[in-house]
Simulated assay, not measured.
Amino acid sequence: MMENVSVVTMFTLSGLNFPFVQRITIFVLVLLFYLIILLSNFTVVFVIVTDRKLHKPMYIFLCNLCVNAVYGSAGFFPKFLVDLVSSHVISYAGCMLQGYVVHSSNSFDFSILALMAYDRYVALCRPLVYQSFMTKQRVSLFLLLSWFISLFCMFMNTASLLGKKLCGSHISRLYCVNLMVANLVCSPPKANDIIAAVNIVFHFFLFLFICWSYVNLIKMCVSSAQMWKKFRHTCMPHIICLLTYTGTLLLDLMYMRFGSDKLSQHLHNFMTIEFLIIPPILNPLIYGLQLTHIRKRILSIFHTKKKIHSF
């Protein structure tokens, strides 16, 4: 009996037990959100890549944050859009891949936000050594390590679940996450628990490092009106994005572990995907509106297009 239930090739997901008309309405809304995410993030990436004046560490880190938003969104939205017009199931391999993409994207978000905080700390608190320290080679190394650590940590987390005997095939969520798959394993995988604990500790220290950077920045800038103006101009977008991302992610984690089954299905679904929608949409909008160079560059692109159409 144990062998029969452990051979799982497909997972069933939950949360879409709605009439087809409602599914179509949700499909249109989700597609709209996905297109906004793609358009806004690709716009920021395009502006930074094509404008040599923006080839600076702060903007390079922002470019990678937007690329990661597209990467993480690709792990959820295409599959979810298909589920809305078909059966809500996913293959074992697809589930592992989806969980890996979502988790690694979240991991890199923390890493890149830490780099952005450190970049602003050096720029404002150590301005004389900024140019010599934040060189192209060092920035490239920081980014390479951030991508590698994020992808590797989540690969180890996902790999620790591969091949384990499962005593169920139903995931009470719109998409796959490693914790839900781990809960289906017949014998709790100790390796997964250890790796998950290490990942949590690592990202907690990243969060503390970000807080340390901003505390020192505030101490340095609060005594000078000119420094405080620089802080508000370049650091406030980072802080808003950090608070938005951390808040939505913690809300999802807390709800996944301690959430009530009494919530309506629509609210339950929103609680499980809000961190996949809100930060990828808000981040490029916040940076596009707050950072003068990016805002002017975007406006110049649209202004040029208007001139071309007028001829």
Rank of each mutant, 00 (worst) to 15 (best):
F205L: 08
V101K: 00
D51N: 12
P127S: 13
A93T: 08
S87H: 12
F18V: 03
N192K: 15
G259C: 11
C66H: 03
I278H: 14
F204R: 06
P57T: 00
H266E: 12
S213G: 06
R138P: 00
F204G: 07
I195A: 13
H268D: 10
N269E: 06
H309W: 07
F204Q: 03
I24L: 15
F202W: 08
L208A: 03
I112A: 00
R232M: 11
S111W: 00
I26V: 14
S14D: 08
S73P: 01
L208H: 00
R173W: 12
A196S: 13
H293Q: 15
L161T: 03
A93E: 14
M271Y: 10
L13G: 04
I210K: 02
A159H: 14
V201I: 15
I90R: 04
R297T: 00
M10S: 10
F11K: 04
R138W: 05
T158C: 14
A123G: 07
L285I: 10
Y245P: 01
A225I: 12
S105F: 00
N64K: 04
S87L: 15
Q290P: 05
I26M: 14
L217H: 02
I195E: 12
N17R: 05
L38T: 10
K56W: 11
C63L: 09
L251H: 09
D252C: 10
E3I: 10
N106R: 01
I240H: 08
I90H: 02
A191T: 12
V44I: 11
M227I: 12
F231R: 03
R232Y: 09
A123E: 04
S260P: 07
F61P: 02
L291Q: 06
S146F: 01
H203L: 02
E3M: 10
F33V: 13
L29N: 11
C167Y: 02
I37R: 07
M227E: 12
Y287Q: 08
L299H: 01
L84I: 02
S264C: 04
D252V: 09
F231V: 03
L184G: 04
L31E: 07
L84Q: 01
A196H: 15
I240V: 15
I281M: 15
P279F: 05
R120K: 10
V45F: 04
N178T: 10
I24K: 13
Y175R: 13
R297S: 04
T12H: 10
L249F: 00
Y71P: 00
P188V: 02
I149A: 13
R257M: 08
M220D: 08
H266P: 11
H266G: 11
I24A: 11
F108W: 01
M58P: 09
R173Q: 10
A93F: 07
C211S: 07
Q98L: 01
H238W: 15
F108P: 00
Q137V: 08
S111Q: 04
T135E: 08
